[in-house]
């Protein structure tokens, strides 16, 4: 069975080309991808992860609001008793990335990352899970 991945855009940022490229790359590598679309609240994303039994949740934010939205989304997802791999992506400075990992985001990828690295990260996580 393919892993199920949610690609979600929390907050008011309306630019979703990056999220779509990530979604398509995942599809091309055999993953089942649910894309939520733009302007999602943390609780919408959490309920989506629950209803879809997501193995992985990928958050994408280009607006700079990641320090508020990513940890809040991760908190709500885990509050529901779910334990997916949570990946943060978008325009995220290195300092923020370190901070986000401390705040409960499993892996953070900043600007210029190849979507293939997201795939690698998921594969590594999958192997460690078995």
């Amino acid at each position: 069975m393919s892993l199920k991945v949610i690609v979600a855009k929390p907050g008011l940022d309306g630019h979703d080309r990056q999220a779509k490229i990530i979604a398509r790359t995942l599809k091309d590598h055999g993953y089942d991808v649910v894309y939520t679309g733009i302007r999602q609240t943390p609780s919408q994303i959490a309920q989506t992860a629950l209803q879809e039994s997501a193995d992985v949740v990928i958050l994408n934010c280009l607006s700079g609001a990641h320090m508020e939205l990513f940890p809040e989304t991760a908190r709500r997802v885990r509050e529901l008793g779910l334990a997916p791999l949570i990946i943060g992506t978008g325009v995220i400075p290195d300092d923020d990335a370190e901070e986000l990992v401390k705040m409960g985001i499993d892996i953070v990828f900043g600007p210029g990352t190849s979507p293939l690295r997201v795939i690698e990260a998921i594969k590594t996580w999958e192997q460690s899970r078995i």
């Binding site: 393919s2 590598h29 055999g30 894309y35 679309g37 919408q44 309920q47």
Partner: peptide, 19 residues
């Protein structure tokens, strides 16, 4: 080709969540 998929139907109802 890959066995993967984009499951895009949900996007049309997403505004109804949380519910």
């Amino acid at each position: 080709r890959s066995g993967g998929s984009i499951l895009g139907d949900r996007i049309r109802l997403q505004h109804l969540f949380p519910n």
